[in-house]
Design a protein around this nucleic acid. Structure first.
Lengths: 112, 112
DNA sequence: AATCGCTATATTTGCACAGACATAACGATT
DNA sequence: AATCGTTATGTCTGTGCAAATATAGCGATT
């Protein structure tokens, strides 16, 4: 029949969004490039948008997700904390599990 | 800790959205009021938006989801087909299951 | 102290999308 | 054939949000 169930999940903390797919993409890009500006370029989003997202992430999280260095050698940079890495990993895992779960639920529709 | 996982699911058919939360709300309102225009009013959305949504639903579905009567006694009206009612019920069920599933997954984050 | 590339933030500009508005078409009822 | 309350569409407007632009601040390195 070819119906498909799609989903989008996100984690909130006090009604603020902590993590969603876009934010996770950004965090991964920071991990790969070592800087927020390079991460923004690699995702084709403006630096400003990337900064706003990251700022929101760090303000919503219980512990810091990234460490941002201003100035200094190379001008600075950003990197994930251990907590940030764990959060990203957990989000990916939960997201995949959710997809698998919903695929199973499809049969309830296909036999209508 | 009080992180929460939220989700939004929708059903697609050939890359077209068939059902999401908003569309299901609209279908339920049609079922209750017997007309698209009354349903739109009860949801505080414009008639046009409601019509576009419903049109998209019926174009995406494999079988008709509503029967729309133009003209005639009372000017016409709209009502759900049996297939439409089943779809709405299945969507609600899957959505609830998804919430429950994600609540269970929360523990993976809480112990970080 | 001058440079560099980054983070941090305000201000302005543009555009997509939602909403308001207008109108046609329809068919049972009178 | 006139009326009525719908469904069915097109058009126009404006506004909120995203993107572009501009600029300040930072600190290691030279």
């Amino acid at each position: 029949m070819s119906y498909r169930i799609k989903s989008r999940i996100w984690i909130e903390s006090d009604n603020n969004v902590l993590l969603g797919e876009g934010r996770v993409h950004l965090l991964k890009a920071i991990q790969e490039t070592g800087s927020l500006s390079k991460a923004a370029k690699s995702l084709n989003i403006s630096y400003k948008k990337a900064w706003q997202l990251l700022d929101s992430v760090n303000k919503s999280a219980k512990k810091p997700v990234t460490i941002n260095n201003i100035g200094g050698k190379g001008g600075g940079g950003a990197e994930l904390t251990d907590y940030g890495k764990l959060l990203v990993k957990a989000f990916d895992e939960i997201n995949k599990n959710c997809w698998a779960f919903l695929d199973k639920q499809l049969e309830k529709i296909e036999l209508l």
